[in-house]
Amino acid sequence: MNNTVKTVLGLFIFAIINTIYIRYFNIMGITPNINAIVVVLIGLNMGMAKGAYYGLYLGLLIDMIVGSSLGLNALIYMYIGYVSGALAKRMYNESILISTIAIIIADIFYNLVIYCTHYLPKDYEFIKYCIRVLLPEAIYTLGLFLCIYYLMVLIRKQINQGL
């Protein structure tokens, strides 16, 4: 099985697992944007083109499984993947700081697009949206990413010590 097939299958399984278990991460109506974490990491590690393609694919999957319109998530995640790839080309050196900043920007970008498409037409106050959704979700997503990152580092260390 080549890498592309593996990634496509992996993202398919991820999309399904994410929609099954995400409700257990719901805190006061806010859920972390795990899709953004995955797309940013793909963009940073695989480059602009793959970042954009896999972002588009994961977004389309989410749109088809649970979305109310086809293409919105696909569009947002395609850009996130593309920009993450562009960022990697210039400054990423497997640095946790760059990943962290990219994930925060990606999550804020996602929620800004959602604000413009869903809440701006309904005159929902922007400041209120920032306090209620944008900032808490960015912090939650980042916190989850850092937890997963340090857990992986710990596991890697344990495995290396065992060897």
Binding site: T31, N33, V66, Y119
Partner: peptide, 14 residues
Amino acid sequence: VIGVDPSSYSKIFI
């Protein structure tokens, strides 16, 4: 119920 929308803004499930 087999799945839920992973985003914070939408409360749609499958």
